[in-house]
Design a protein around this nucleic acid. Structure first.
Lengths: 211, 211
DNA sequence: AAAACTTAATTAAACGTTTGTTTAGTTTTA
DNA sequence: TAAAACTAAACAAACGTTTAATTAAGTTTT
């Protein structure tokens, strides 16, 4: 789908306000004002507020797919290195698209089978399948141990990053990092999260579980 | 604050619907209908929808405080055992009060300094202080290693459990657990999460980080 | 103990806003 | 000059809240 300048402005304004206030909290007039267009343009271009949300999803999910497929083929790097690259990729994507990820978190909390919920479901399933392959490759080669609950492992990755973004003000405050500008702080978060998750994953994947 | 039967009904209805649909998504008429009371009773008893949300928080945060204070004094158990008890306690509270925790997650996503946001902030700060003591005790005794990023560790605990609850339908589906009834599935989640987090925390706290 | 009075609980209806969407008309573009 | 882009205004529906009237419960007076 090719979007005009105004349509892109609307999608970006919607992304910002849906992330800040939620779908019901952000009115179409808010969005139109933020995008600097007439209210009617939203219905005119997207049909409805609901459809606008779907357009946001179609637009933002294109840049969000993990680069795990190319990783699988690569034979020059170790299995653990592949996992580490995956972690870096995920953390990067999440931080650079915070707004959209916040929208995803909200939508997942809703107890309904909306079109958007299905999109998220498919996205997660596709990601999980790829990662499963990557882990199982490592298991076959003996680099990773058996009996890994991959879904639970992914839950920790997604959950840790989500929680960090959600509570970043809290993290800033308790660590006395309020002097930092936004860019600098994002870099720090990225670094800390990556190192932390790589450490955790190494333990999950390669160390024997204690019983 | 002592609440009458109807007031409790309103608070519980609000908790359910705020969790399902969010603050803006749940109308006062929805809530009144769910609680089987007249719409006007909400303003009559609580003043406003906003104040009702605050009442929900005051009511539900009373049963949510972690039992970490008593743990600190106890000298009969090891430092790692204390952490394990803390994990069990947290997982239990989260699963048994899913609805309220979903509300908390949503509220944390909002970029505003609402009274409710302050309540969450204080709750988290208090919890963090207690856990800090518990960890530092273990460090002084030599049971835990130095240089632990406690906030990051807590982010993983909170994040993993949150993510599991948020995406529990997904977890059910990919593990072919859809035949399970709700109670049985909650037991499984509780067990899996506890074991997983205990394993992770043991690594974070006692194993030397690889560099 | 009955009647009178007071306060609290409860209701249906109405209030003024704000909501998402549509209309009918105007301007711009090709 | 026909199609597309755009606008201000109007639309009905839903929103949170208030009102005015009624019922229930409790207290005081006779």
């Amino acid at each position: 789908m090719e979007y005009s300048g105004k349509q892109i402005a609307i999608i970006n304004a919607a992304t910002k306000l849906f992330a800040e206030k939620g779908f019901d909290g952000a009115s179409v007039r808010d969005i139109a004002h933020e995008a600097d267009v007439n209210v009617a343009m939203i219905s005119y271009y997207f049909g409805s507020k609901e459809k606008l949300m779907e357009a946001v999803f179609e637009d933002k999910t294109n840049n969000i797919k993990l680069k795990v497929e190319n990783l699988l083929q690569d034979e020059g790097i170790s299995h653990l290195q592949k996992v580490n690259i995956l972690i870096d990729d995920y953390v990067d994507k999440f931080i650079h698209q915070q707004e959209f990820h916040k929208i995803m978190m909200r939508e997942q909390l809703i107890d309904k089978n909306t079109p958007v919920a299905c999109l998220i479901h498919e996205l997660k399933k596709r990601n999980l399948e790829s990662i499963k392959k990557l882990i199982q490759d490592g298991q076959k080669s003996g680099a990773f141990k058996k009996n890994i609950d991959i879904v639970l492992m992914m839950t920790t990755m997604v959950g840790t990053v989500s929680q960090m973004i959600t509570a970043q003000h809290f993290y800033k405050k308790v660590n006395n990092l309020e002097h930092m500008d936004e860019m600098e702080f994002q870099k720090l978060m990225r670094k800390k999260l990556s190192a932390h998750l790589k450490n955790l994953f190494k333990q999950i994947l390669t160390t024997d579980e204690q019983r």
